[in-house]
Amino acid sequence: MKKIRHTAQKNPDARTAWGFLAPALVLLGLFVLWPTLRALFWSFTDADLLRPQQAQPQGTANYSDLLNDPRFRQAFFNTALFALMVVPVQTVFAFFLALWVNRPEAYWRWLRTVFFVPVVVSLPVLAILWTLLYQPVRGEEMGLINALITGIGLPGQRWLRDPNLALPALAFMSVWQGAGFQMLIFLAGLQNLNSETLEAARIDGAGSWQRLRFVILPAMKNSIIFVVTATLILSFRLFAQPYLMTGGGPDGRTRSLIQFIYETTFQDRNLGLASAGVILFLFIVAFLTLLQRLAGKEEKS
C-alpha cells in the first residue's frame, strides 16, 4: 500500500499536470499577472492616468516620493493597525460561531444563514446603517451603540468623529460584517471532521476546553491557517468603509492603503505614483503572508 502511494505521487506525468494547469494559468497570466506587470512598468514612470501612452521613465522617484509622503505612511500605519485588530478578533469570533452553528438540524442551518447575511448586504448600505448606529449623543438623540453604553452608565462616545475611536469602530463593524465569511470557511473545514468527534467536543460543559484544544484545534489547523491568511489579506484591502463613512478622517486616522492608491489613481490621476503604491502594497502583503505562513507551518494532510 505504501509503495503504491509513493508511485502515484512520484510518478510525474508532467504533461497531464500542465494540461490541468494550463487554462487557469492562461487566465491568471492574462488578467492578473499581465496587469500587474503593467503597473510595475508604470511605477518607474511619470504616467498620467489620462495619457499613460506618454509615460516617461523616471527611475525610482515614485518610490522615494511615496516613502517620504506622510499621507502614505499614515495610510500604511492605519491599515496595519486595522489588520491587527480585525484578524485575531474576527478569526476567533468566526471560529466559535462555526463550532456553535455546526449542527445538522434545520434550525441551525437557518442560524448559519443569519450570521451570513451581513456579508451579503451591499457595503454602501451597511455604511448608512452603521453611521446610524454610531451616531453621537446630541441632546435626546443618539445611536443605538451610545444608547447601550449610556444605559449602563458609561459616557457616550463620538465614535466615527473621534480620532482615537474611528478606526476601532470601523474594525468592529468589519468584524460584524465579515465574520460570516470566515465562519463559512471554518464550516467547510469542520465537514472533514468526523461528527462523533465534534459531538463529543461541543462546547457545553466541563472538559470541553480540553477537547477543543486537543481534538478540534489540531484537526482544524489548515483551516485556521487559511482563514488567518485570507483575513489578513482581506483586511489589507480595506477600502469601502473609510471611503464611505469617514472620508479617511478624522485627522487622516482611517485612510487605508487602498484608499490612498485609489485617490492617487482616480483623483490625482498620478498613475505612476499609484502604481508604485500598488507594488509596495503587494510587497507588504506578500511579506506579511510569508511571515505568517512561516509562523504556522502548514500541515500536509
Binding site: 492616468l49 489620462l50 495619457r51 499613460p52 489613481t265 482616480f266 490621476r269 498613475l271
Partner: peptide, 8 residues
Amino acid sequence: ERIAAGAA
C-alpha cells in the same frame, strides 16, 4: 473614473 479609464 469612467472618463479616466476611457482616456487611458
